[in-house]
């Protein structure tokens, strides 16, 4: 069984701020991390490897610096790592990215479709949740989303719990599949020291547009139907009345109750 886990390096958006004077993103000091949701996808992949002896390949698309997250995945137990990287991929939207990653997966699997491809449910920088489903279309493999628990047997039959709005959908199917994984699936493991030592020396395959035999018109900015036309800071609503109740909590309580009465929010 061959499992591919797709991961992404993202800026830690909880720390990204806008400079109020220049209205630009302040990227200085913002750390790059493995997209948190991808950690759960990787853990699911590692669990399949542990239980069924699958081969586990990690794939990321990004600049050369993204090698860092591949090494981390190798240290945790992935067998091989692929960096999909080229200036020509720059500016890709979700369609061009889905195309590029699916071509890279094909290449990394020697032209075959892997049994299972795992993604985090979304990346925290773009928040689109579109690339996993997009890759499933390009690979022509069934799609299963929001996987919270995966029960897989060696013959490829699976049962998953999928988080939907009306509850948990318990869904049955047979590999191949592309699955997106949610946070509640598991707790990501730490890499061992031995794992790190092995990962430091492990080779990483780098694939560019030629290696994946991509159609030049379908990659990067040119291959992206969506265009960012403008960016602007989010509208700020002005704050209202403010009461300092640090000395006397009762002042705060009184203000709240009066406010609720005024607005007709308490009977």
């Amino acid at each position: 069984m061959h499992v591919v886990v797709c991961i992404k390096q993202v800026p830690d958006t909880t720390n990204v701020r806008i400079n109020p004077k220049t209205n630009t993103l302040m990227r200085e000091g913002v750390e790059s991390i493995i997209n948190p949701f991808d950690e759960y996808a990787l853990e699911e992949g590692l669990k399949v490897k542990d239980s069924l002896g699958a081969r586990l390949t990690v794939v990321t698309m990004g600049p050369p610096q993204a090698t860092v997250i591949l090494r981390e995945a190798l240290a945790r137990g992935a067998d091989d790592a692929v960096l999909v990287s080229s200036r020509a991929f720059g500016g890709a939207d979700t369609l061009a990215t889905s195309y590029t990653i699916s071509m890279a997966i094909r290449k990394a699997c020697g032209g075959k479709t892997p049994d299972l491809v795992l993604f985090g449910k979304q990346a925290i920088d773009g928040d689109t949740a579109q690339v996993g489903p997009g890759v499933s279309e390009f690979l022509d493999v069934p799609l299963v989303t929001y996987v919270q628990a995966l029960r897989l047997t060696a013959d490829g039959a699976y049962e998953v719990d999928s988080q939907m709005d009306d509850g948990l959908h318990v869904v049955q199917g047979k590999l191949p599949a592309v699955m997106t994984v949610v946070k509640e699936a598991s707790t990501p493991r730490f890499a061992s020291l031995a794992g790190w030592m092995k990962a430091a020396k492990a080779p990483i395959t780098v694939l560019d547009e030629k290696a994946i035999e991509a159609d030049p018109i379908r990659i990067g900015l040119k291959g992206s139907p969506t265009k960012v036309v403008t960016i602007f800071p989010p509208p700020v609503k002005g704050g209202g009345e403010k009461v300092d109740a640090r000395e006397n909590a009762a002042d705060g309580v009184k203000a709240i109750v009066e406010f609720l009465e005024k607005k007709g929010l308490v009977k």
Binding site: G240, I256, F259
Partner: peptide, 28 residues
């Protein structure tokens, strides 16, 4: 007092929530 939430709140109370919550429950 500098919490960004106050920038959008119609009413902002700067204070200790552990004092305010029980007092508010009592008042209601």
């Amino acid at each position: 007092p500098m919490a960004p939430i106050f920038g959008v709140a119609d009413l902002g109370i700067v204070g200790d929530l552990f004092e305010i919550i029980p007092a508010l429950i009592k008042a209601l």
